[in-house]
Amino acid sequence: MPFLSGRRSGRPRLAPELDDTELGRLVKVLRTPSRPGMIGMTDLHVARASALLAAAGGDWDRRSHRLSVLAAAIPDAGLASAWAAREPRNADALLLHAWVRLERGLRTGSLPDSASLLKSCYQAAELRPEDPEPWVVLLGVARVERHDRQTALRAWREALARDRWNRQAHLQLLGCLSPEAGGSRHQVIEFIDAVRIRMPGDAPSAAVELTACVGQYLDTVSRGGVEALMARDHWSQPLVRSVLDRALAAWPSPGFLRHAAALADLNLLAYALVCAERPADAATVFRALDGTATPWPWQCDGDPLTEFERRQDRCLRPR
């Protein structure tokens, strides 16, 4: 991971792939428009995506990270659908196609062909029964379509039976239980309380509680008026302060966080500390990040790279 190397890499950069160099190369290729006259690019992209996912093997955390980042990077569903059409018995092809459609659904709030998406997930689960990812995508579908709580919990249990601390599973269930998806603040608190007492501090899902705290803060800000003006008080609540303090004490330490999306969680922590008006503490996290920025949550305040750089410069400025 970049924050383990001790190097300084210059200006901040948006890197949704985080420390995954091979993933970053493929994302760059997928986002580069094809030149006129070039043929066979779909075949080449499919081959590279297939090799990248196969290389993750049984590292479910790395595999989940690669699938979700690829799904967000693909400009349209053409590549994923072409791969799934060519190899309908390939679990990776089915899952990438499902993730691409889910990613679009999470952005737009609807899934035009959810029956086909569900079918892809169940087929992938049959082809690779040990893989938690089909169940993670099913959790995302339940979130977008506001399925009943029991439907979401069934997918949740299946995912965790295969990967106990799956990061995406925890985040998708958090989304399912949130007021935005038809849940409630009470359900979110119940969920966080249940997982906190058992979850190791360095688990891939360790940021689920901080994600809930940031989500509540952003929801308050979005209401505008007096509530938005008083949103900063959110960070002074004892429970919220303790969440920040526990994360700050451990996460930036070299080698503590080892999961694929560790740098995304550090971005979240830096953002929360900035919002909590704790610039000295945020500076510690910015140093650990070494300029690696993620779109979320910085995009909540404007252009993500601009916001990251502005907040970083302010926190690192000599006092």
Rank of each mutant, 00 (worst) to 15 (best):
W99H: 13
V100K: 08
V100S: 07
R101W: 09
R101N: 14
R101P: 03
R101T: 12
L102I: 08
L102H: 09
L102C: 09
E103M: 04
R104F: 04
R104V: 08
R104C: 08
G105N: 09
R107W: 09
R107D: 15
R107H: 14
T108Y: 09
T108V: 12
T108I: 10
G109L: 10
G109C: 11
S110P: 04
S110M: 11
S110I: 11
S110R: 15
L111W: 12
L111T: 12
L111G: 08
P112R: 12
D113R: 13
D113S: 11
D113C: 05
S114G: 07
S116Y: 06
L117M: 13
L117A: 06
K119N: 14
S120E: 12
S120D: 15
C121Q: 06
Q123F: 07
A124R: 00
A125Q: 03
A125T: 00
E126Y: 05
E126M: 05
L127V: 03
E130R: 01
D131N: 07
D131K: 00
D131L: 00
P132N: 10
E133A: 10
P134T: 07
P134G: 08
P134I: 02
W135T: 00
V136P: 00
V136W: 00
V137P: 01
L138Y: 05
L138N: 07
L138T: 08
G140R: 02
G140Q: 07
V141R: 01
V141A: 07
V141W: 03
A142I: 04
A142E: 06
R143S: 10
V144I: 12
E145N: 11
E145F: 01
E145Y: 01
R146A: 13
H147P: 00
H147Q: 14
H147K: 12
H147R: 15
D148V: 02
D148E: 15
R149F: 03
R149M: 07
R149V: 06
Q150I: 05
T151Q: 06
A152H: 01
L153Y: 07
L153P: 00
R154W: 08
R154H: 13
R154L: 13
A155E: 06
W156I: 05
W156K: 03
E158A: 13
A159N: 07
A159L: 07
A159I: 05
A161D: 14
A161M: 08
D163V: 01
D163Y: 02
D163C: 04
R164M: 11
W165R: 04
W165F: 14
W165P: 02
N166T: 03
N166W: 02
N166E: 13
R167E: 15
Q168C: 06
A169P: 03
A169V: 05
L171W: 10
L173G: 05
L173H: 05
L173M: 15
L173C: 09
L174F: 08
G175Y: 02
L177P: 01
L177D: 02
